[in-house]
Amino acid sequence: MSSINNTIESYQQKLAISRLGLWLFFASDAFMFGGLLVTRFYLLGNKNLNLDQTLGLLVTSILLISSFFMNRAEVMVSEGNHKGFITSLVITILLGISFLVGVVGLEWGSAHFGPGDGAEGAVFYMMTGMHAFHVLTGIIFLSLVLRNGLNKKYTPEKHYAVEASANYWHFVDVVWIIYYPVLYLMGTI
C-alpha cells in the first residue's frame, strides 16, 4: 500500500518539476520572440507592412481553431475518451499543417517583398519564419503524441506528454496572438 502511495507521490512530484521546467522554457523562448518584436518596432516604427488581410485573418483563424481542438484533445484524454482524443489531435495536426501552408506557402509566395528587400522584408520573414519553425516543431511533437496515443500509451492518470505538447502548441498560439496584430494590423501604410 505504502509503495503505491509512494509512486503516486513521486509521480506528482515529477509532474510539478516537469511543469515548472516547461514554463521556464516558455519564459526563455518568450524573450527571443520579444526581441523580434522590439526589432520590428525599432526598425519599422508605426509602419504597416501592407500584407494580404484576408490571408492573415484566415491563418489566424486556423491557428485559433487548432488551439481549440488541442484543448479538447487534452481534456478528452484526461476523461478517458480515447476516440475523441485521437480525432481532436488529428484535426489539430491538420490545422497546424494548413497554417504552415498558409504562411510559408501562400503568404511568402505572394508577399510584395522578398527577405532581401529592405527592413520590411527582413523583419517580416524573420518573424513569420521563426514562428513557423516553432509551429513545425509543435507538429512534430503532436505527431509523436499521436503515434503513442494510437498505441494507447496515455491514461487519464498519466498523460504528461499530451499536456506538455498541448501547452507548447498553445504557447505558439499565444505568440501568434501578439504577432498577428503587430504584423498585419498595426500602423499606417
Binding site: Y42, L43, P115, G116, G118, A119, A122
Partner: peptide, 15 residues
C-alpha cells in the same frame, strides 16, 4: 541579405 543592420536597406546598426 536580410538588411537588419545596414542603413542603406532600412536597417539600423544601433538595434
Amino acid at each position: 541579405e536580410m538588411s537588419f543592420f545596414t542603413p542603406s536597406g532600412g536597417g539600423n546598426p544601433i538595434l
